[in-house]
Simulated assay, not measured.
Amino acid sequence: MMLWVALAVVVILIAQDILLVYFFHARFKRHDEGLQWKEQLPTVSVIIPARNEIQVLPTCLAALSRLDYPSEKLQLLVADDQSIDGTGPMLEAWASEGANREKVKIEAKYTHLNGKANALAQMAQKASGELLLFTDADCEVNPMWVKAMVKAYTPKVGLVVGLTSVRRRGLFGRLQGQDWWLTLGMIKVTSDVGHLLTAVGNNMLISQEAYRRVGGFEGLPFSVTEDFVMGEAIKAAGFRPIFQFDQESLVLTKSETGLHALLRQRKRWMRGALNLPWFWQAVLALQVLFFPMVVIILFSTPLLGLGLWGCKLMFQVMFVRGLAKKANIYIPLWELFIFEVYYLVISWSTIVYYFWPSKVNWKERTY
């Protein structure tokens, strides 16, 4: 009986991977609906809060300085969220170098929100742009980022998610990058069929109309995944968010430096995932069950188990490589094989750590 259950789960997961590959290649949408802005670009406010980011800020700020967008239509808002490492003075100096730059003072104003959402709410109140564009201080945007996000926007969508990739530094960072590709690939596929799973806070555009209609971040309930809650609120308000998945919308983010830091990040993400509809929670749960189920098959029928595992790996490789190719990134096969071991360890470690009686630690704050 257990063997048949294992076979059913593995076959379902292989079918899921086949569908992901099919929909990504056959139904892929590159959103250019906003090209009507080409003659008259909208005003955009870029919003970046920072908390103890002195090590990564120089890269972030240098990238912002290279943005290819008319300066008179671009407002750059940065904020020091109660840092203790010199982040504040660095932001102050950078903001003083441009007329379209402004450093926002952050107060403990919205106590029902997490720290980052509190900062975002206050920064958005200072935003004068027709469109709000969000990223993080540990990210590096490319020069065409603003234009790529703007050209995807139309009033009916309300929110545009952009492409984020982990910097390919060291084996641990490369493997985290593959994890991101898988997750973002699922978000892209579901978005293209009309059901965006989640917003991604380090690369998202929101119109002022959509933002105000949901009451801003200050109008949201508490969550450690404020981007997810914002995305859900905008969908509930009648908008149809989309995912702009291309090289020009790409933002690079840093990888976590160790297993403990990665598990803390994933614990926070799982809090958000548990707010997904039951169907999507079941899909994610099935992903984790692949390894124990295929082991059961291997013990009973080794050749069949190896064949099924190889089949799943083949379609997973096709999917991840296809995703990365859209951003002009090459992933060697050996990394994709090592990722199988990484994913087994991280997925089950995340489950154990999630239920471990500890709070979510995020930017030196606990929730």
Score class of each variant (00 low, 15 high):
L313W: 15
Y343T: 07
K103E: 05
L252S: 11
K73N: 07
M270R: 04
Y69L: 12
L303S: 06
L306D: 03
R168M: 15
A324C: 05
Q40I: 08
M318F: 12
L220W: 08
F134H: 07
R268H: 09
W180Q: 12
P42K: 07
A79T: 01
A285F: 08
F279R: 14
N142T: 15
F222G: 06
Q265L: 13
F319Y: 09
W181N: 03
Q176D: 10
L76C: 08
K73I: 10
S96W: 04
L61S: 02
V193R: 05
K267E: 03
L133R: 01
F290D: 00
I18G: 10
L61M: 07
I297Y: 04
G173T: 11
S249V: 06
K105Y: 09
T135I: 15
V193F: 14
L306T: 07
L306P: 02
V189Q: 00
V288Y: 08
W145D: 02
K103M: 15
M318D: 00
R51H: 08
G258N: 15
T225D: 05
M204Y: 09
W362S: 00
Y330M: 01
N114E: 09
M90A: 11
A210S: 02
G272I: 12
S71Y: 08
E33Q: 11
K38R: 14
K326N: 03
G34W: 09
L250I: 10
L274H: 13
L67D: 03
P292E: 13
Y211C: 06
A237C: 08
Y153P: 01
A327R: 01
W278P: 04
F279Q: 14
A99V: 11
Y110L: 02
